[in-house]
């Protein structure tokens, strides 16, 4: 039994997605997942400066940042930390696989991620919010994708670690996966046996319909109602 009473593959709540929350960004999304609150704004494709362009595909830029008040503990720093820089890189690499960069050669696509409030698993949550924002921007993609942090707690593989589980657990495994089960982002902190990793992948892939459904439902809403770009935290 997990410390917060969740089942092995149960995700934290709330888990809510909203798209089209900003007016200036080409596409945007706001995600609440457990204690995480993340906002993403996407720009592009747009003209890229000459030193930056590639002749055959668009250049993707990801800038992941945490707000200075995202931690319950200390005041964070405004300049990107080493952690943020690494996360920006792995997220960019993960998203580059599913965005069809070849459709817009010599252009640039910017993805700006701001974690307003954090409670563990921010990189995988940011990935999912970025996927939603990219879809909302009408940027061509091969398919949808999502991310979950699996972990090992008390010798058991579980999904979506809480902050406590992350601190006391034996392993943290963030994974981003597309709807075909391909792994786009994969990191490991701690130690696991190969069969435990296999179990983690199985549990993670088991959630793909859930995340797909959430995307689909939000976009149905996005399309059917009068679109109002309004950013509110409480509903």
């Amino acid at each position: 039994m997990r410390s917060d009473g969740r089942k092995v593959d149960e995700l934290r709540s709330p888990l809510k997605l909203r798209v089209g929350v900003l007016t200036e960004a080409t596409g945007s999304a706001y995600l609440e997942w457990g204690g995480n609150r993340i906002i993403v704004g996407v720009f592009g494709p747009k003209d890229a400066p000459p030193h930056f362009t590639r002749p055959d595909k668009a250049t993707l830029r990801v800038d992941y940042k945490m707000s200075t008040f995202s931690s319950k503990e200390e005041h964070g720093r405004s300049a990107p930390s080493r952690r943020s820089i690494e996360i920006s890189k792995v997220l960019r690499e993960a998203l580059s696989k599913i965005v069809m960069l070849e459709k817009y050669p010599q252009s640039q696509i910017d993805i700006h991620i701001l974690v307003l409030q954090a409670e563990g698993g921010t990189r995988v949550a940011s990935f999912y919010a970025a996927v939603a924002a990219l879809i909302a921007a009408g940027i061509p993609m091969r398919t949808r994708a999502f991310g979950i942090s699996a972990g090992k707690v008390n010798d058991e593989i579980v999904l979506d670690l809480s902050k406590e589980e992350d601190n006391l657990g034996q392993a943290d495994i963030p994974v981003c996966m597309d709807m075909d089960g391909n792994v786009l982002l994969f990191q490991l902190d701690g130690k696991v046996k190969p069969e435990e990793l296999k179990k983690a992948f199985e549990l993670i892939e088991g959630k793909k319909e859930f995340f797909d459904k959430m995307l689909r439902e939000e976009f149905e809403k996005f399309y059917s109602q009068e679109i109002s770009h309004e950013f509110r935290v409480k509903e």
Binding site: L22, T23, G35, R37, S67, T68, F69, S70, S71, K72, E74, H75, G76, L116, Q117, A118, E119, H229, E230, F231, R232, V233, K234
Partner: peptide, 26 residues
């Protein structure tokens, strides 16, 4: 909207028309 960020010791989201600002205090 007040108290929008639980990790902060004070917070608010304000919008004037389309302009949106989020303030958090640590």
């Amino acid at each position: 909207e007040k108290n929008v960020i639980e990790t902060a010791e004070g917070s608010a989201l304000a919008s004037i028309g389309d302009t949106v600002a989020l303030a958090g205090i640590k």
